[in-house]
Design a binder for these strands. Sequence first.
DNA 1: GCTTGCCCTAGAGTTCACTTCATAGTTTAA
DNA 2: TTAAACTATGAAGTGAACTCTAGGGCAAGC
Lengths: 137, 137
Amino acid sequence: MKIQELADKMGLTIHTIRYYEKEGLLDDRHVRRESNNYRNYSEEAVERLKLIKKFQSIGCSLAELKEVLQDHDTNTRTNLQIIDWIRSKKEEIESKKEEYDQMLVTLNKMLEYRTLLIDDPQKAQAMMSAWQAGSSD
Amino acid sequence: MKIQELADKMGLTIHTIRYYEKEGLLDDRHVRRESNNYRNYSEEAVERLKLIKKFQSIGCSLAELKEVLQDHDTNTRTNLQIIDWIRSKKEEIESKKEEYDQMLVTLNKMLEYRTLLIDDPQKAQAMMSAWQAGSSD
DNA sequence: GCTTGCCCTAGAGTTCACTTCATAGTTTAA
DNA sequence: TTAAACTATGAAGTGAACTCTAGGGCAAGC
């Protein structure tokens, strides 16, 4: 399979695929060269890219992905280690979610203040002094 | 107030403060020059940086912040417009949260599979074929 | 007067995951 | 046969928000 075909199949650009190769995410199980130096991809390349996409979708950076794939290839890690890794990844995501929750709390306060400002400016004033800087105009 | 003092007070670096100024987030209400060309910050600068931090904490980019601050300074926007803006900001955050939820769904599936692999490898096998690529080793 | 430690500027470097560019060789269809 | 369409390379560009560097000017204490 040539690069454009693979790109179409995977919904990636040829640039991205070459970039992944340069970053060491693909090796000669996935891509070889023809006599004209064109890349020729195996079916394994498709699976590899699916795996890459999967791990990207759970918030892995390419650097992390590279490690994960190396461990995967060499069967380095035990099931328990993998479970630990998944747990820590979950915590990472959950803490990011909490940050967003915090943003929502703030936005809701702002919204409440702004709404009150229409309905009952005096109460809004009181809210403002109790709170500060919800927007300091 | 000199730049280091302000930086300490706000928990920022002097580089960041100069950067904000270069980006047009501070003007001469906040910073003037002494005869030796040193920056001299007013108390308003402290409030300005607090406001910047507040808006950053609700997920504003500096570009967006710049607009917000300009509107704030010139009193351009009506309360209703601000309410709309807050609502759209909330939606933005919520959709990011949903992305993270999706990641968690995937991670939980992976965790389930990996746990089952210890307790009941046969079921895990079945799960794998029903699902695929939770990790394809 | 010297050292230390602030302050200034313009500009380059950082990180991430691509994306684009310039230039050139290869294949294929008309 | 020639033009279009594909492939290759290395290198530079992108954007966001800083961060750091080089090379210099002030200031305060001894």
